[in-house]
């Protein structure tokens, strides 16, 4: 009869034309097994569609997977929609084929963390826990 009180909600999303979803499904499963409430957007979403879902679901974090190369404009657009004055601390993180120079640029411009290819699953949950425990 109980609902989970104060459990963290994470939206995982694939944005743009990239249809490779094996990785995100692995992350999804791991986050669910780690005790989170996980919502998956499905493929080919626009930043606005992702933002709308994030708002309706009042998520605590959005994880984006992009392997298409268009990560910079897509992340920036998502940040402009989601990270506003009135926003609570919605974390934006991501992974995929994102080069180091772009990682530096993105994290300076609103992305909270990028997990490049080769990152471990546990590094994601360790990071989430560390951020949320320190709030």
């Amino acid at each position: 009869m109980q609902m989970q009180l104060n459990a963290k909600r994470i939206l995982l999303a694939k944005v743009g034309l990239d249809g490779h979803d094996r990785g995100i499904k692995i992350v999804l499963t791991f986050l669910k097994e780690s005790g989170y409430q996980v919502i998956y957007s499905g493929l080919h979403k626009t930043p606005k569609q992702i933002a709308d879902v994030a708002f309706q679901e009042d998520v605590d974090a959005i994880g984006i997977s992009i392997l298409s190369g268009s990560h910079v404009p897509l992340f920036l657009e998502l940040i402009s929609l989601v990270k506003t004055e009135e926003s609570k601390n919605v974390l934006i993180f991501g992974g995929g084929t994102i080069p180091d120079t772009d990682i530096a640029f993105l994290t300076k411009n609103g992305v909270d963390r990028i997990f490049p290819t080769g990152s471990t699953l546990i590094s994601i949950t360790d990071w989430l826990e560390s951020v949320w425990t320190n709030l």
Partner: peptide, 27 residues
């Protein structure tokens, strides 16, 4: 594991929020 996969919204049309439909997943 006390986690939840909130997977219902995947089956709905992607454009529903654009059309004003409010969808909330609950564990």
């Amino acid at each position: 594991d006390k986690g939840t996969f909130l997977g219902d919204r995947l089956r709905f049309h992607q454009t529903f929020p654009d059309e004003g439909v409010f969808i909330r997943s609950i564990s």
